[in-house]
Design a protein around this nucleic acid. Structure first.
Lengths: 227, 227
DNA sequence: GTTCGCCGTCAAGAAAGCGTCAAGATCACG
DNA sequence: CGTGATCTTGACGCTTTCTTGACGGCGAAC
């Protein structure tokens, strides 16, 4: 059954959503603030998350960012704010949709259907192995050839995850920057160079001669698995 | 470059969108009614389509359905209608998002980014093969007949990609210059000669007697596949 | 036969991109 | 409030790539 997590502090809205969603045969989890919501998401990862921007303990955008750190399931943001900048910020933080209150339940359900429809149904094998290191996307760990574990920073992990999920494929600098830092950082190719350098130092057998994390000058980077 | 198709009959809006989108480095195609829009989509499938619900010749929902018949690229619906049922119908027809007029351009751009972000990066990877080299447009790689990989510069790749996507078809110098360097460089045919020469040196079995990258004197170039 | 336009080639200087380093700035945590 | 980890930011050499101008070959027009 499709599992939906709702993070909102409006008890009345929570109740209405619970009824509407369970009636449509969704499994629903409710949370009234950001911290419990994130905890619930980590305990049992939902197939879709609905987040209110106006939470008592933290900003909704922060919740979206935290979720996007490890989850790929769709996120729909609810808000009473109508300002354009709020929408832009939430969407750029990684939200899939933004619905302004008040809204019709029917519309929200339709947007949920739309978001679920395009969600990748196939969670592929989350372990990528090379001769030099092994990446476990499930447990978020990288093990080196000698058995020791590589300690990656959040940014490094994010970078590695994108590359490793698309073996052999060229990932453009623009895409990486947008995905990791947001569209405003499209031109900060400095960031990429620094973090890619750190990543190579931790993973590559010979960091000065990258074997797995290759640069395509002027275009981007790519992860090259063993033959 | 990411390609966006806009189907709308509001000339003023079309103009505004064209300006905003091209400024963000999107390639834009405009259509003023459903039939020409669908034809344009079929001719060169866009990476994202924006459809107005109120078209002169057909209902926007019908356009969405027609597109969804064969295309998987994201669709964003624009509409002045605020009724909930209209939104539900459009979303259930296969639209990815629904934006009600009037809207801010910034918001639309953010929604475009969101839609493109989650678009399946696993779009089918066309591979063009000849006896001398193989071009993989998905991974952006060129392999020579002897199995080695050809290292192309960004400009060379750009040039090759355009030609190879249009086998047997003549591509004018003007088009190539506009596409790669921008409209101001229409007369710099020097650039083409130099880079085409480099490309031939890397790909052609006998660079002085081009077999695949042919010159049509005075007109332009064309890629000629085997047989 | 000459002239003209167009093309391919070459080489040198200019520009841009890359990896690296190190010094602040920022943040999380105790 | 201090500490350590992480991220940002700027600078530096180095290499690759692009631009730019010049040259000669070739064919068509005259």
């Amino acid at each position: 059954m499709t599992h939906i997590l709702v993070i909102d502090d409006d008890r009345q809205l929570l109740r209405a959503l619970r009824i509407a969603l369970t009636a449509r045969d969704y499994a629903v989890t409710l949370a009234q603030d950001g911290t419990t919501g994130l905890a619930a998401a980590q305990r049992t990862p939902p197939d879709l998350t609905i987040v209110d921007l106006g939470l008592p303990d933290m900003d909704g955008v922060a919740v979206v960012q935290a979720l996007r750190g490890w989850a790929t399931a769709p996120i729909i943001v609810l808000s009473a704010r109508h300002t354009e900048q709020a929408k832009i910020d939430a969407l750029d933080a990684g939200a899939d949709d933004y619905v302004t209150k008040p809204f019709g339940v029917g519309e929200l359900l339709a947007r949920i259907r739309a978001a679920l429809r395009r969600a990748t149904p196939t969670e592929q094998a989350p372990v990528i192995a090379t001769a030099a290191f092994t990446v476990d996307l499930g447990t978020k760990r990288v093990t080196l050839a000698d058995g020791t574990e590589a300690r990656l920073t959040p940014t490094e992990w994010h970078l590695l995850e994108i590359l490793v999920r698309n073996p052999d494929r060229l990932i453009t600098q623009k895409y990486l920057l947008q995905e990791i830092w947001g569209p405003r950082y499209e031109r900060e190719t400095n960031y990429l160079r620094v973090h890619m350098g750190n990543l190579r130092r931790k993973l590559e057998p010979d960091p000065s001669q990258p074997r797995y994390l290759r640069t395509d000058p002027g275009l981007g980077y790519r992860f090259m698995p063993d033959e």
